[in-house]
């Protein structure tokens, strides 16, 4: 599915075959982009201080068609640039996942297509990856852009950190460093990319967050429409479910449904007793409606939980519950 969705443009020949670059930088061009040529120059200059053995992987969505022209120009002079184009819009997480699976480097970096952090941050992240960390995420701190809209983000990250048991503060900061083994195993989809540190932590990887200097041109961060907040809220709920109940949906739906149904049943029982032994009329009482609704709603919830269980059971073979770090024979 995914392989079909991504269409490879011609890849520079030097990088074909089994040759593995030391560093890959994945740039999903999804929402918006700044001067990509300048972004490339800034970061490649910083990377060159460590090694010349790197590649840039650009994943471009059709909505960002404008980026293709400058990237093609960039590619003409630079064999280290690889370019992939989605033929349909799948969102940032999909672009990220596609990029991670195609990056060949030992250390894989992800980079937003607009200015977020200063290029010097690369060095810090690189050092940490060298010190045996699997995933390094960055937090733009201190902030230089306006504080407008920071509060929802603060609440969002606070809840997410609580749920996942790992503290992180800037999920939308696109600059991260990931070891190749971790990148291969991580599954990012839907709107879950801000939770990458939480997902990685759940898989058992060593995750660390560092403070990064914000890019002077990063001024649009934090300003979002209500739609973005709604989708983040849903993503938060998804995370909660993923963390706790993904393998046992009935534990969640069963608890909610059973409690609801029990409340409804109690109400109905109470009304039945009133009707039978005290002869009071029920038709006028809204309580009857409430009782019936709760009872039936509870049953439906349990039913949904059962569907979840059937799904998990019949797909158990394809899913994996654990991550092996090493095998010593």
């Amino acid at each position: 599915m995914e392989t079909k969705a991504v269409q490879a443009l011609p890849i520079p020949t030097e990088y074909e075959g089994d040759r593995v670059p030391h560093i890959s930088v994945v740039v999903p061009v999804v929402e918006r982009f700044d001067d990509l040529e300048r972004l490339y120059k800034d970061f490649s200059a910083e990377i060159s201080k460590v090694t010349d053995d790197f590649e840039f992987v650009f994943i471009v969505e059709p909505s960002q068609f404008g980026a293709l022209a400058s990237l093609r120009r960039l590619m003409a002079g630079e064999p280290r640039v690889r370019l992939f184009r989605f033929n349909s819009s799948f969102g940032e997480a999909a672009a990220l996942a596609a990029g991670l699976s195609r990056a060949r480097g030992e250390f894989i970096f992800t980079l937003a297509s607009y200015y977020q952090v200063r290029p010097e941050t690369f060095r810090q992240v690189y050092e940490l990856l060298n010190q045996n960390k699997d995933v390094v995420v960055t937090r733009r701190y201190p902030r230089i852009d306006s504080n407008f809209g920071r509060f929802p983000s603060f609440v969002f990250h606070w809840i997410a950190s609580r749920l996942s048991g790992i503290a992180f503060h800037d999920g939308s900061c696109g600059f991260r460093g990931i070891r190749r083994e971790a990148a291969r195993e991580l599954t990012v989809y839907g709107d879950l990319h801000p939770f990458l540190p939480a997902l990685a932590n759940r898989q058992g990887y060593r995750v660390v967050e560092i403070n990064a200097l914000q890019h002077p041109l990063d001024t649009r961060a934090g300003v979002r429409g209500p739609g973005a907040y709604a989708s983040r809220l849903l993503a938060l709920f998804t995370l909660f479910f993923l963390m706790k109940f993904i393998k046992k949906p009935l534990r969640f739906f069963g608890a909610v449904g059973a409690a609801t149904a029990f409340a409804g049943f109690s109400i109905c029982l109470y009304l039945t007793v009133l009707r039978l032994f005290y002869g009071s009329a029920l038709a006028d009482r809204p309580l009857l409606m409430l009782g019936v609704l709760l009872l039936l709603g509870g049953v439906q919830t349990v039913g949904i939980g059962l569907i979840g269980e059937i799904l998990v059971f019949s797909h158990a073979r394809e899913s994996k519950d654990y991550q092996i770090e090493s095998i010593m024979e």
């Binding site: 058992g204 519950d321 654990y322 991550q323 092996i324 095998i327």
Partner: peptide, 18 residues
């Protein structure tokens, strides 16, 4: 002896399955 080391604590069932 063969040792299979999991990345973190995944629980008894997962360890057994591994």
């Amino acid at each position: 002896i063969r040792i299979v080391k999991l990345r973190r604590n995944f629980g008894q069932t997962a360890a057994m399955q591994a």
